[in-house]
Design a protein around this nucleic acid. Sequence first.
RNA 1: GGCGAGGUAGCUCAGCUGGUUAGAGCGCCAGAUUCAUAAUCUGGAGGUCGAGAGUUCAAGUCUCUCUCUCGCUACCA
Length: 707
Amino acid sequence: MTNKKRYTVTSALPYANGALHLGHLAGAYLPADIYVRYLRLLGKDVVFVCGSDEHGAAITIRAKKEGISPRDIIDKYHSLNKETFERLGISFDIYHRTSAALHHETSQEFFKLLYDKGGEFEERTNEQYYDAEFNQFLADRYIVGTCPKCAHEEAYGDQCENCGSTLSPRELINPRSTLSGNTPELKETTHWFFKLDKHADWLREWVKEGTLEGAQHHDPKTWKNHVTGQCLSWLDGEDGLQPRAITRDLDWGIPVPLEGAEGKVLYVWFDAPIGYISATKQWAKDNGKDWKDYWQSEDTELVHFIGKDNIVFHCIVFPAMLKAHGDYILPVNVPANQFLNFEGRKFSKSKGWGIEQHQYLEEFKDFPNKEDALRYTLIRNAPENKDSDFKWDEFVDFHDNELVGNLGNFINRVVVLTNKYYEGVVPQVNSDSQVLKDAFALVQTFQKNVEAFKFRDALQTFLELSSLGNTYLQDVSPWKVWKEDPESLEVKECLSNCIQIVTILSVLCEPFIPFSSEKIRSLINLPKVENGDLQKLLNQLQNKETLISEGHQLGEPELLFAKINDRKDASRMQLIEKQKQHLEDILAAEKANDRAPIKPEITYDDFVKLDVRTGTILTAEKVEKADKLLKLTVDIGLEVRTVVSGIAKHYKPEDIIGQQVLLLANLAPRKLRGVMSQGMILMAEDENGKLVFVQPGETWGNGHQVS
RNA sequence: GGCGAGGUAGCUCAGCUGGUUAGAGCGCCAGAUUCAUAAUCUGGAGGUCGAGAGUUCAAGUCUCUCUCUCGCUACCA
């Protein structure tokens, strides 16, 4: 954290074509929310913006296929995501949308300014395939056709998956649109490209050294390794930076603000990051602020929170745009997170693997602490520097051990004891005791961690503070002293110190578990934490002032958190078991469905076209520069064939010499990794992908037919 | 094969620019305690830091080689 006057914090704009899952939350939204809430607690001037990214071909295509309008789709997901974030306590100052008129204007102005300035864009005209029925130009992957190299009939416009050739759509024989199935026509079209390449030099210096035009802009050591690494691999990559198209032929998006550019819109990655700016504008308008203070003032720190898939856009492309424009500040940090997996696998919507944010809220609607339980677990195990894994068992452990056993229990002990001994009134205070000094030290460590975007460590430090309280309480054991002497000063001091610690906890936890913070405050009968409260607390600790004064009346004891693994009430554990069962069902279903369905019927004539022969492997060797390929020579009686087979992962060359096999002998020859393969070895594959030779059941001569 | 990340206690992981007996949490074992949601506190066991070589007075920490894992990618089935 720099000591700037203002802070502009952004979270990646979600694409309004679907719901978000826990990985998104852990990656870009929760960390940003924590940082922002922390800044607010310090009394900083901060704006936290986000919103829906609502343009792009995926939305129009889906709309056409479903027979609804793009507007229907974006409205649905915009409200779903906005509302879900709210319910989870993600405290955006504004959740805007890129379909808003203000955003269209802002993007067009931005484009126009770069265009008029000259030197930033170039125009390129070429012919592209066009689907007349769907009335749009086709991206490469929306075109299929016959591969010119291997005659595979389902090759994509950019690549043939059969022979691996890199293709361009024009090379396909019999191209078809995947939208309408029709043959697309070629049409000439013009697009604008942003000359990213001309920005490479200063970008490299900016990323590597943190300097901008000779001046120190940020400390590059504060950037995460994987962020810097990925940027440099782009900047120093084989082809370096290339001009990138920033327009598309589409009827859904922001029209290119130029004469003769009808039917063209700004491409998503040009338009989406500008969404941060337009969101800020709208917020400023609604709140009587000047948006320029937050984007064009050197006194402002800009931070983008994103997932690792977005690093290049936020560390290279968008900064280049901002710099090209000239009036804008650049991000001081882009603390991108890696990915969160779910129970050992990637989130997969189609397979039902994982859980979406709104689903979680729905499934756990009867769980008392659902928002903070989730926030806590996701941060506790956030993919800050490497991919991490969400597990239900850990969710239960973290919740029950740390939130309930450590934090909740400490607070409860303190409130119960104070109520028992002093009717809930804060006893005599000594704000200069050692335990409070220790607590202050932990608060400072906590701050250091948050400011370095180490939220996992911050949470751990937070928990250490709660542990400090438990240990202290145990050491003094006021319940023992009390039995001897109910008027003991030691007991009063101990409990008062504990109450001070609870007060600190109630503030520190607010960025992470805001709902619980409020509950803790009500237990100690203080108002909800508000902006600047942490700063106030720091000053008080520094000056050894009391945080909560003698005579203050606490609230009634009440349990903060309910254990999940509760012997008296199984209901919460059942929620978890249900989730785990759901995953097991998916796995079981996968296993059951693993046998591929029977292919479409063929005739006997089709079958007899195959010439399968018995054979024996004579020699085998690895094919160079290929992990899976073995080059075999196979004796099929009449002749010896050279066959390349993808079995290197399953068999060592020396182990299969003499192996009897079945060979598809009349398959068209094909070159693989430079070796001509004359036929194909028949293999059987099980559900784990294990391959095994298919062979005659007894020793058999070579060259006999299989029928 | 290429690119990237990584192999540190049973599990999940910290260990920055090389420097005293390698750490935390969970789990396990033992004990203390009863204010508290079978919570808490204390102590203990457990690691030749993937393998080998090298640089160095000194290496999880630097260099090289090898090996294995994961992701992307290429080649497949």
